[in-house]
Nucleic acid binder design. Structure first.
Lengths: 151, 151
DNA sequence: GTGATTGCAAAAACTTTGCAGATTG
DNA sequence: CAATCTGCAAAGTTTTTGCAATCAC
């Protein structure tokens, strides 16, 4: 935990970015809520516990910066809000999403199934993959359990 | 072309939705620009040629409706604008995207590579897939051609 | 006819920007 | 110190909503 913060700090400093209280607090919130997909507003509310003076604009600016540094990934589920995921750089590419169209739940597949497809993209299209994203929409196991659902 | 319009008309009518001039014009625009990923604003501008009196709000409402009927798919490339793709229901699931992080180009893979993965999702997670989305981000063949790119 | 649908304008939701003052290295 | 960074408030974007008038069936 502390070592991950240290690493991100160094990443910032190596690019001559300053390490402000607000930035550190934001990074800590992201680390503490790694499994979630926080919106800027979510992050804002959580950061306020650690740095009550912070403004929403700063949160946006920090998330944008972390995104440029590839510390977080900005993702979008189509609900009109950007969400920010910490990049797990040990695996680099991480998980996929199962989004339930019935109850709105979002589960994750914590594996990367796309290795073979990435190779195929590189060969077939001469496209150098940097990142990917895979979401499935459908009916989750909970809703499937409740009733037979003829979409 | 006309037959596809006919089909969508029936789809609307079967759910007791009325077939207004504006809705038909919107559907025509979507059919005529099937390869593009139009935003609501794009659609609005194009529809105005056919139905000058239309308002932007109606375009949004129509696209939302078509989305519910699974006639179009609402997608989001993370640029803050929702885009709408006609669903090609012969294949049901259609294409994937190659988004170039260098030049911003967006190419498409006009095949569906996810059949096997969908089966896996259904079995392993008891998740009934209705739709999916797969995007790759990276360096496209054009940018790859110009220079060796160490991301 | 009657309920669904529309256009308009106003509001909402999310994000970005300008600027003076505070802070970091 | 100098340049970066922040908070605030204001502005920008995109999308949604309220409502009276209109339209499709």
């Amino acid at each position: 935990m502390e070592e991950r913060i240290e690493k991100i700090k160094q990443q910032l400093q190596s690019q001559a970015y300053k390490l402000t209280h607000q930035r550190e607090a934001t990074v800590r919130v992201l680390l503490e809520n790694e499994e979630d997909h926080l919106s800027a507003e979510d992050v804002f509310m959580l950061v306020k516990d650690k740095a009550p003076e912070i403004g929403l604009a700063t949160v946006y600016r920090t998330l944008e910066l972390l995104s440029e540094l590839h510390v977080v990934e900005k993702i979008n589920f189509g609900d009109g809000v950007a969400r920010y995921d910490l990049r797990n750089d040990s695996t680099h590419h991480h998980h996929h999403h199962l989004i339930c169209v019935q109850c709105g739940a979002m589960d994750e597949i914590m594996e990367d199934w796309l290795g073979p497809l990435e190779e195929r993209v590189e060969e077939q299209f001469n496209f150098t993959v940097v990142d990917h994203r895979l979401d499935f929409q459908g009916i989750c196991f909970r809703c499937n359990g409740k009733t037979n659902n003829p979409i």
